[in-house]
Amino acid sequence: MAVSEAAANSLAHGGGKGTLRLWTAAGAGAGVVAEIHDGGLLADPLAGRRRPSLTSAHGGRGLWMIHQLCDLVEVRATEHGLTLRLHVATR
């Protein structure tokens, strides 16, 4: 669900296209990692970390949901675009 939301956000807010990479992590941090990169920008460095209002017309609920579903969400914003890395540990 988190990867689907991130991919949808990439299409809607990241220039209409993006790249999705998936891999497994071994060792103590064993799990699955999904990386989504696009040409988008992120003005608020804390986006998704604060619970958005349910009545907000500005959205933000998808990124918040991603943070709730994943064990770790890494956000990297550069002049070349936005990269999200979603980590989910295997249990």
Rank of each mutant, 00 (worst) to 15 (best):
M1K: 13
A2V: 07
V3T: 15
V3Y: 05
S4K: 13
E5T: 14
E5Q: 15
A6G: 06
A7W: 02
A7M: 15
A7Q: 09
N9L: 13
L11F: 06
L11Q: 07
L11C: 02
H13P: 05
G14N: 00
G15E: 03
G15M: 01
G15N: 06
G16E: 08
G16Q: 09
K17E: 08
K17I: 09
G18L: 03
G18I: 01
L20E: 04
L20W: 03
L20Q: 06
R21M: 02
R21A: 06
L22A: 08
W23S: 09
W23F: 05
W23D: 10
W23H: 10
W23I: 02
A25P: 00
G27S: 12
A28T: 13
G29V: 03
G29P: 00
G29S: 12
A30M: 04
A30E: 08
G31V: 07
A34R: 10
E35D: 02
I36K: 03
I36E: 04
I36R: 04
H37W: 04
H37G: 02
D38Y: 00
G39K: 09
G39I: 01
G39C: 02
G40Q: 10
P45C: 01
P45V: 02
L46E: 13
L46P: 00
A47H: 07
R49P: 02
R49Y: 02
R50F: 00
R50P: 00
R51H: 05
P52A: 13
P52S: 13
S53A: 11
L54P: 03
L54V: 09
L54G: 13
T55K: 12
T55R: 12
T55E: 12
T55V: 10
T55H: 11
S56T: 14
A57F: 04
A57T: 08
H58P: 00
G59E: 05
G60M: 07
G60Q: 04
L63Y: 10
L63H: 12
L63W: 07
W64D: 08
W64N: 14
M65V: 05
M65E: 11
M65K: 09
I66C: 05
H67R: 15
H67Q: 15
H67V: 10
Q68L: 10
L69P: 01
L69S: 00
L69K: 03
C70R: 14
D71K: 05
D71P: 01
L72R: 15
V73N: 15
V73C: 14
E74H: 11
V75S: 14
R76A: 11
A77H: 10
A77I: 07
T78V: 08
T78A: 12
E79L: 05
E79D: 12
E79V: 02
H80I: 00
H80E: 07
H80C: 01
G81C: 01
G81D: 03
G81I: 01
G81M: 00
G81S: 04
L82P: 08
T83S: 14
T83F: 00
T83Q: 11
L84P: 07
R85F: 01
L86T: 06
L86S: 08
L86G: 06
H87I: 09
V88Y: 05
V88Q: 14
V88D: 05
A89G: 04
T90W: 02
R91P: 08
R91D: 09
R91W: 01
R91I: 06
